[in-house]
Amino acid sequence: MLDLLPEPLKAWLGPDVTFWLGYFTNGKHIAFFVSVHYTVLAALLGAACALVFGLMGAALWTSRNPWLRWPGAVYVNMVRGVPDVLFFLFFPLAFEQAMEWMRASAVCTPEAAAERAGQWPPCPDANIFFSTYEYLALACVSLGIVYGAFAANVIAGAMRSVPRGQLEAARAFGLSARQVLWRVHLPQMWIYALPGLSNVWMLIIKATSLLSLLQIADIVQLANRLGAPNFSRSAGLVHGDWRWGYYLVLLVFYIGLTFVSERVFAALTRRASRGMAIEGAAR
């Protein structure tokens, strides 16, 4: 990377600066910078999943049919008592085991299964190894499940906040129940849901720091590896324990993400509240 700098600039920077520039752009550090994409992907896709799960959860929870309402209520309220990290670990594990169980029933011979009784997977052929991106997809779905319950709460509240007069007017115009829902109720719901959804987004961003728990070599894991005391036989101790410095950088990175998100949501709220008769609406 350092070769890309023109010679005069290098001379002007001096040997110390160029050394550190070189050090912080070596292959390992480039991999570290690139691994940010796992975090960003997980946040964006996780948020998309959470929105889908949130809409479905809210629809179930507010349904008139008790057979739909009860599962919805359990789903929405479950996250109140159980930490997110537990779901985050459990869902990928359970999914992997379910896949292996399905494969085992197809590929395992009774003899092979009997040999490994009480072990998992039932036979070696049934073992599934997920790639990093498959784990990332699973992580996004788990984030979606956990934070979907939070989003469902927000969306259900926002649906209740839409003024009754709007819905009554729509009905008086002769719109069917379906049309009222899709053309009046849902579009107006967003502005009431935005502050709550912004909170959920902040939670999702912070939860993306847990990706390393699913064997994804994300920024947290690479920071740990890069900062760990580095000892080589030829050069001796290259550097001591620098992990806290790398984690400090991550801390600042996340604070920056929060800062940017706040600004974006403030702009979104301003935009979405144009012409709406609510507090703080842009006129």
Binding site: A207, W244, L251, T258
Partner: peptide, 22 residues
Amino acid sequence: IYAFRGSPFFIQLFMFYSLMLA
């Protein structure tokens, strides 16, 4: 308040633990 609410607890744990180790 902003720094601690704006960053994940998981990273805070790592940060302070490695600082104490260093």
